[in-house]
Design a protein around this nucleic acid. Sequence first.
DNA 1: CCGCGATATGTAATAAAACACATATCGCTA
DNA 2: TAGCGATATGTGTTTTATTACATATCGCGG
Lengths: 123, 123
Amino acid sequence: MKPPRSSKKDVFLRYKLWLSAVSGEGIIEENQYLLLRSIEEKGSLKAAAEVLGTSYRKAWGDIKNAEELLGYELTEKQRGGIDGGKSTLTSKAKKLLEAYDALHKKMDTAIEDAYEDFKESIK
Amino acid sequence: MKPPRSSKKDVFLRYKLWLSAVSGEGIIEENQYLLLRSIEEKGSLKAAAEVLGTSYRKAWGDIKNAEELLGYELTEKQRGGIDGGKSTLTSKAKKLLEAYDALHKKMDTAIEDAYEDFKESIK
DNA sequence: CCGCGATATGTAATAAAACACATATCGCTA
DNA sequence: TAGCGATATGTGTTTTATTACATATCGCGG
């Protein structure tokens, strides 16, 4: 297998989408989205963090940060009790996830549409 | 001036767009774009870095990295000579900037279009 | 042929972000 | 009421990214 005649390498377009507060800080991006979805599924922050392979400490901090910047709660927390505690999504969080989903789909479409033109124009 | 009744803060959508190599590493994003534009204008990497308020060392490293990942030169470098040296854009770099511009405009439009829907759906 | 100013590049110092670890609190259940 | 498991949070440690500093090379012009 010989190397390609041209030394040009394949190039891809990537983008990252996030919600930010006026300060410019991030609130919700891919990781937080996945974390919230995972909480929704598992019913606990601890289990959700494990699924994503991240630490409870970080997951907790991310949620706290997002809630503070948004100004409202994303999760309903419960300490103690039969299973030690749990976390569930608030209705606002669910709405947010749906909206994020829809937005991401639109952006995906936009970038797909633009990708061919892009590749053509850098030839 | 009293605080708003609601504790909700304004939220904005932000995105970052970049070219990446297969490895997933970034090549060109906003900073590199601005750096290249600045080189185009100033005719030197040193002057361009100063304009952007960054160090020559970092600017040089960024360009080098991008060129290695792309597999072709973005700048024509000249050491020594009447003015000590200079850097100018290759035609490929110019094409890349144009393509990046066009892409960014399309994405801006897409996100603008989606923004109102987004805000509405998280109410 | 020396000095100027820009490119070229290694390495040390610093700052910022992530992660690891420790500890406290809560409410059910045995 | 002691213990279990999850939430809650401070703090030290490590990793990573950025900046700073130092030095070399190049080619023209005086």
